[in-house]
């Protein structure tokens, strides 16, 4: 099948970008979306043109490196799926697709479809961890964790940090990402001592990074490739309020 692609091309963070039309011919339905772009890039290289830059690595849907907008939807039309796992059988011959990078002040475009998501690392650095220096841990079974808590923590911990939530959010808020980490660690007994400081530090960092505020719209949840639920954001709000009260932090 053939597809008409409108791809955002931008040389670097400073220069302005624009969409350029490309024709992807000979698209096989068993290709992944990224393989379709590989083939397009091969044809561009053959013509001496610069290939489209896009981030990708594991191509198994777990590393969180890939991701851009297809027709205005983060990771494309298939729910619970990253781009690398999205196959061309979900598109039809002659379809017209707009490919754009994640857009948020906190995620500046690096080139074409590649953005800089280091703001996420700084959110984690601010407090998304449990301070357990190597060597200090007690036996793994010394502190029991109810199965339900472990499962819920795992649901939240499944976040791959791809940034689709921010990209899709009309407010460009990082609340789903932060809520997932705060829930993951806050649901485990090991995460309790730093629970309230964690939420305060991460929320403060998020303001500094200029992520928007959550208005409970839910578009993040709809495009999250790991189907993380809005409940994690409520948990973050709860911890935030509790932190304000208990720690007299604000």
């Amino acid at each position: 099948m053939r597809l008409l692609l409108h791809i955002w091309r931008q040389r670097n963070a400073q220069e302005k970008g624009r969409t350029i039309r490309y024709l992807a011919a000979d698209v096989n339905p068993d290709m992944s979306f990224l393989e379709m772009l590989d083939v397009l890039n091969e044809s561009l290289i053959a013509k001496g043109e610069e290939p489209v830059a896009f981030d990708h690595d594991c191509r198994e849907g777990i590393c969180g490196t890939c991701g851009f907008m297809i027709n205005g939807v983060a990771h494309g039309p298939l729910r619970g799926t990253t781009l690398c796992q999205l196959h061309m059988r979900h598109f039809h011959d002659g379809e017209e697709l707009y490919l754009e990078p994640w857009r948020a002040r906190a995620f500046p475009v690096v080139r074409d479809l590649v953005v800089d998501r280091s703001a996420f690392d700084r959110l984690i650095s601010a407090g998304g961890f449990i301070s357990a220096s190597t060597g200090s841990a007690p036996d793994g079974n010394a502190i029991l964790v109810p199965k339900e808590n472990a499962e819920q923590a795992m649901d939240a911990a499944a976040c791959i940090g791809c940034g689709a939530c921010v990209a899709m959010c009309p407010n460009a808020s990082a609340s789903l990402f932060m809520g997932a980490k705060i829930s993951h660690l806050g649901l485990l007994p090991q995460g309790q001592p730093e629970r309230l400081e964690r939420v305060l530090a991460m929320v403060a960092q998020s303001n500094e990074e200029r992520f928007g505020g959550c208005t409970n719209i839910g578009e993040c949840e709809a495009v999250c490739p790991k189907q993380i639920k809005l409940d994690v954001i409520a948990r973050m709000h709860r911890d935030f309020l509790r932190a304000g009260w208990r720690r007299r932090a604000f």
């Binding site: 449990i130 357990a132 841990a137 993951h184 090991q190």
Partner: peptide, 9 residues
């Protein structure tokens, strides 16, 4: 032990 302490679920 180390990983449990870090919050690996």
């Amino acid at each position: 032990d180390q990983c449990v302490a870090q919050g690996v679920p």
